[in-house]
Nucleic acid binder design. Structure first.
Lengths: 415, 415
DNA sequence: GCGCTGCCTGTAAGCGCATACATCACCCTG
DNA sequence: CAGGGTGATGTATGCGCTTACAGGCAGCGC
């Protein structure tokens, strides 16, 4: 029975010994090992019992550790560690010996132990709210996944890229049912620093966490002034978009559908809307014409209907605080027989992929989400390098994307 | 000077004491603490020096630990731990005391220490190759991020969702410059299990890792037969697509642009192509008409040009092994004045968002990528629950998406 | 020759938490 | 009132690694 070394099975204790991992019964063997962990390791040999193993299943033997590698290669655990952490500090010959043994044993270092000892993880994190939209989800189910790619997905992509460039991995977690506490424990305890989308984690928790590790806040106001912070030009973007509707399309009766009152993004956009109205000597509303939840298309649809049902002439143009709502509104308007943009112009904000797919394609304000992620990582890395640097607050520019839903026909040919 | 507890600064040692964190000089204090860690903690008070702290910067004090919480709440560290791990095993009154102290100190548990002690991380991982395409990247820079959403992004989304449902966070890492070794160390050491996209990690490394933790392989053949595995119906999909071109569009001179020879996906698709050719009594090629790298649009463009430059009548239809290449080909064909689909039909495979955006919209085979991610998590979770369960291999169905590039005009109205 | 310097390696002590086991207080039963 | 059970808490140890510090050993100048 000359099993290839790659298939040592639990049901073959001798193979275990052959592989040199059996340190259960024979402890201590050569080096006095100040550890007991081995006792629980090759547990078949210890107890005579064996776990319920499926036939043919390759056994999961105990995890080899630095001790095993050290023993096998005849060096100390410190040297093993150095081979991985700082190869140049070890003589080439020793290094090879160690690496050879490590390979034979199938050793690789435990991230947890490393992290614990070195107080650093090599991981950056991202926490974001769960922007799941059941509506879009349903569309996606029988349609195209791209319909559900949202805000956060692009940030993820940007962060992953940037993190990788800096040698970090990325840990992502959306807010959980279990409340932020779980989220915090899951992420905060496992990363060297992380980015948070606005309104994901209560400010007071952030305050605490940020005492321990770098946190950068994304999108939204700067709730904690000693944190790094990145936002996008919500105000400017919406103002420019509004100007476009007013100046280029000659619309004068405009409505703004806002988001939750505690959404600073939505409020900033509303502010931009108001500014443009004021410039054009149009009435400047104190409040959004309607408020709705920004999370679902259904809410946008409801808002659109409410607008139509108000009585009086309906607005010539409706600006939604984000794309999700605007897309829902397009649905609703269509089913009510209202033609966009002929009867009413509609705009969104964000520039999610879906905005381009719907018909009519949605005029919107594109946020540089991927860049948001990249900048976030850069800030984190920089702060990890110098904890005392001045906190910064970036504002990323946005750009108005004119498509069909505002009356700018024929979107530019893509590609 | 009654600083709010949220802004204890390093430059105020007394505040440190107030907060009860100063365990540096006074060790041991009440409980004999078998730890030295405190020595390096409130380092201002120890050395009399202080780190270069920017004015107004909130100091990062030492991380509070179970010991601090235990001391402050007058219990043992075991009880503190229990409060978090198994609250019901602690008397309510004690629990409140502990939680109160924890909150005051800004304590939260170290993921690393938890992981080390409990041998579990609560994190699942995903390793994927770097599908970055500089071409698409460039498009995206001045255009729309959605153009660069690729394969992996949707898997990420699917996995994140599913992981969250199961209480896991997601660690993602694309293959690094530093070779897979780094990747392995980064991810494998930090997760309870992970998914790997085909050709990301050498089989032999996977073999080793999978001895320690559950691994599920995504897309591609089942390289290691004791691992869980999910693939998509590449063969069937391409066969159906080819049938469509032959039967519905009456095309007979078809070319297939394959991928790297070591891409099992591309080979399976080629297989489907051949099968359909055979059924229709068309010539059955042994090799793809052309091979190219599937990673970039530029390669697809080159392939298209090569096809045109071959001399003889060019094919009536070209099937590309993936969307990336097909999109590049659309570019190239356009600039050569070849009209798609009138002069030549073009198809892709994957159903990336970009396929829908290009003009003409690309006929392709849509892979259920989000579902791929979800299934992967399910398999991982299930295996974590029962290491001995029979390894499974799933094949997910795909669906042909007929759009303009094959001659099926007017893609169905979306939304 | 002798101390010194540098390089390489080993020794030992933690990192912060989980948990088996020991204790302890208290209540119940007979 | 002894014996035993039960639930809450404390004690002690290990998880696998990093790293400060302490040799050991060669080469060097004087």
């Amino acid at each position: 029975m000359d099993a290839p070394r790659s298939s040592v099975t639990r049901s073959d204790p001798e193979a275990v010994d052959r592989a040199g991992w059996n340190r259960a019964c024979l402890l201590p063997r050569e080096l006095p090992r100040p550890r007991v962990n081995a006792l629980s390791n090759t547990y078949a040999t210890v107890t005579g019992l064996r776990p319920p193993v499926h036939e043919g299943m390759v056994g999961r033997l105990s995890t080899p550790t630095v001790y095993d590698v050290a023993e096998r290669s005849g060096v100390s655990i410190a040297t093993v560690s150095r081979v991985y952490r700082n190869p140049d500090s070890v003589r080439a010959q020793t290094r090879d010996k160690v690496l050879h043994a490590a390979r034979e044993l199938g050793y690789f270092p435990s991230g947890n132990a490393r992290g614990l000892a070195s107080r650093t993880t090599g991981v950056l994190g991202l926490c974001f709210p769960d922007y799941a939209d059941p509506d879009a989800e349903a569309d996606g189910a029988d349609g195209d996944d791209s319909a559900v790619m949202l805000y956060s997905d692009q940030i993820i992509r940007g962060m992953e890229r940037a993190a990788r460039r800096h040698g970090y991995a990325l840990l992502i977690a959306a807010s959980l049912e279990g409340g932020p506490q779980t989220l915090v424990e899951q992420v905060a305890g496992r990363v060297d620093g992380f980015a948070v989308l606005a309104r994901t984690i209560p400010t007071e928790d952030l305050e605490i966490i940020s005492r321990r590790l770098p946190v950068v806040m994304l999108a939204g106001p700067r709730e904690i002034d000693h944190l790094d912070h990145i936002e996008v030009a919500n105000f400017d973007g919406e103002r420019e978009l509004t100007r476009h509707l007013i100046a280029d399309h000659g619309l004068r009766r405009l409505a703004f559908v806002g988001g939750e009152i505690d959404s600073p993004d939505a409020e900033a956009r509303f502010g931009g809307f108001r500014a443009a109205c004021q410039e054009a000597d149009l009435p400047v509303p104190d409040e959004p014409t309607i408020r709705a939840s920004m999370m679902t298309q259904a809410e946008g649809a409801r808002a659109a209907e409410a607008l139509l049902d108000r009585g009086g002439a309906h607005p010539q143009g409706v600006l939604f605080a984000n794309d999700q709502m605007a897309v829902g509104a397009l649905h609703a308007l269509e089913s009510r027989g209202v033609r966009v943009p002929r009867d009413i112009a509609v705009t969104g904000f964000d520039g999610i992929p879906l905005s381009r797919i719907v018909r009519p394609a949605l005029t919107t304000v594109r946020q540089p989400m991927r860049r948001l992620g990249e900048e976030a990582v850069d800030l984190l890395v920089r702060r990890l390098g110098d904890r005392s640097r001045e906190p910064v607050s970036l504002m990323l520019p946005v750009s108005v994307t004119r498509r069909a839903s505002c009356g700018c026909v024929g979107e530019a040919r893509q590609l």
